[in-house]
Amino acid sequence: RVVVAASRELSPVWPFLIVGASLILMQSGGSLKRFFPPSSTGLAADRKRQIAAFMRTIHTDTKSSAEASSKMRMKAVTFDLDDTVWKGFETLQNAHANMFRWLEENTPKTAEKYDSNGFRKLMGSMREKHPSIAHNFTALRKKALEVAFEETGYEVKENVENAFNAFITARNDVLLYDDSLRAVKALRDRGMIVGAITNGNADVWETKQMGELFDFAIKAEDAGKPKPSKEPFEIAVACCREVLKDVEAAHPSEEPTAGSLGWNVVESEIMHVGDCLRSDVHGAKQAGFFAIWINRGANGGKSLGTREGVETKPDFVVRGLDEIAAKL
């Protein structure tokens, strides 16, 4: 069951929102806990105060213009990770190379039979053979390693874990864009709830510097489906509400009173930032989020309306993450 922040004035659609989020979580494993820091017992007191102050600002804002009101209504931001917060291609290349160094040193017959391109083809065949885990890059890589070790006569279980550990250690050693730390921290320091929604398998909590900036992180392999499916975005909404429940419990006397949903957050109050028009922009828009496309010069001259076969246009286009705070 999903426990969400209550309000003294509930919207008529609120029960249906609860049921919908509950069904999504049941399908993906039934608990929000795995989307929060593994050692966390809840938000730190300073973080709760920070979010509470921001929520009060939103609900007591007296600006009259529709534009100002719209800007102030954004309560949360979610980020794609690969090619948005960090350099996905370079990070993956380094991780793949690190795994192959381990193979060459420990299982040379495997490295000889499956060079880098050969192993990628093997992973592709695993995706076709096991469509139920096509979104789970951890499971796919381990399946491919199992086959490779079996075919080359090595013990499977221990070698799979060791080879994958070589990969994921380097996968989590991410190469950040110059603006990432500064931009994410700026939004967090405002008091916005900050989350990640990624189709990749990097563990944000294991990355240097970035993990401490996120309140929650959703990987496709944990959500059960990848973006642009609605499930990861709906889980993000549930995570935001869980954060607000935690904040409200610590600051009950500071509950915002304006608006019909009080401490709640709805989809239109969450903005999602990503580099992929299909996974991020289309996924966010169909889930009801405010969509920001980050295009670091990779448009290729194609129309926003047709790139990657997606007709949905983003609400904002930015060239760097620093531009986001300036637009709020």
Results as ranks from 00 to 15, higher is better:
Phe100Met: 04
Phe100Gly: 00
Arg101Gly: 09
Arg101Met: 08
Arg101Ser: 09
Arg101Asp: 11
Arg101Tyr: 02
Trp102Tyr: 15
Leu103His: 05
Leu103Cys: 12
Glu105Asp: 13
Asn106Gly: 07
Asn106Ile: 02
Pro108Leu: 05
Pro108Ala: 03
Lys109Ile: 06
Lys109Glu: 15
Lys109Gln: 14
Ala111Asp: 10
Glu112Gly: 01
Lys113Asp: 00
Tyr114Asp: 00
Asp115Phe: 01
Asp115His: 08
Asp115Ser: 07
Ser116Met: 14
Ser116Ala: 15
Ser116Pro: 02
Ser116Asn: 12
Asn117Lys: 14
Asn117Thr: 13
Gly118Lys: 03
Gly118Gln: 03
Arg120Met: 13
Leu122Lys: 03
Leu122Trp: 02
Met123Arg: 15
Met123Asn: 14
Met123Trp: 04
Gly124Ala: 14
Gly124Thr: 14
Ser125His: 13
Met126His: 07
Arg127Tyr: 08
Arg127Lys: 15
Glu128Tyr: 09
Glu128Met: 13
Glu128Thr: 11
Glu128Lys: 13
Lys129Val: 07
Lys129Met: 14
His130Glu: 15
Pro131Asp: 11
Ser132Met: 03
His135Phe: 12
Asn136His: 13
Asn136Tyr: 10
Thr138Glu: 11
Thr138Leu: 01
Ala139Leu: 15
Ala139Asn: 13
Leu140Pro: 02
Arg141Asn: 04
Ala144Thr: 09
Ala144Ile: 10
Ala144His: 08
Val147Ser: 07
Phe149Trp: 09
Phe149Pro: 09
Glu150Met: 06
Glu151Thr: 01
Glu151Arg: 05
Thr152Glu: 03
Thr152Met: 02
Thr152Pro: 01
Gly153Val: 08
Gly153Met: 06
Tyr154Gln: 02
Tyr154Thr: 03
Tyr154Phe: 08
Glu155Lys: 10
Val156Gln: 06
Lys157Phe: 11
Lys157Arg: 13
Glu158Ile: 04
Asn159Phe: 05
Asn159Asp: 03
Asn159Gly: 02
Val160Glu: 12
Val160Gly: 05
Val160Asp: 11
Glu161Pro: 02
Asn162Val: 01
Phe164Trp: 03
Phe164His: 04
Phe164Pro: 00
Asn165Thr: 06
Ile168Met: 02
Ile168Tyr: 05
Thr169Arg: 09
Ala170Trp: 01
Ala170Cys: 03
Ala170Phe: 04
Asn172Asp: 10
Asp173Pro: 00
Leu175Gly: 00
Leu175Val: 06
Leu176Glu: 04
Leu176Thr: 02
Tyr177Leu: 11
Tyr177Val: 10
Asp178Arg: 12
Asp179Phe: 04
Leu181Tyr: 13
Val184Trp: 04
Val184Arg: 03
Lys185Tyr: 04
Lys185His: 09
Ala186Ser: 14
Arg188Ala: 11
Arg188Leu: 10
Asp189Tyr: 12
Arg190His: 09
Arg190Asp: 14
Ile193Cys: 10
Val194Gly: 10
Gly195Val: 11
Ile197Tyr: 15
Thr198Val: 07
Thr198Phe: 07
Thr198Ala: 07
Thr198Ser: 15
Asn199Cys: 00
Asn199Phe: 00
Asn199Leu: 01
Gly200Gln: 06
Gly200Glu: 05
Gly200Asp: 03
Asn201Cys: 07
Asn201Ile: 06
Val204Phe: 05
Glu206Lys: 14
Thr207Ile: 09
Lys208Pro: 01
Lys208Asn: 06
Lys208Gly: 00
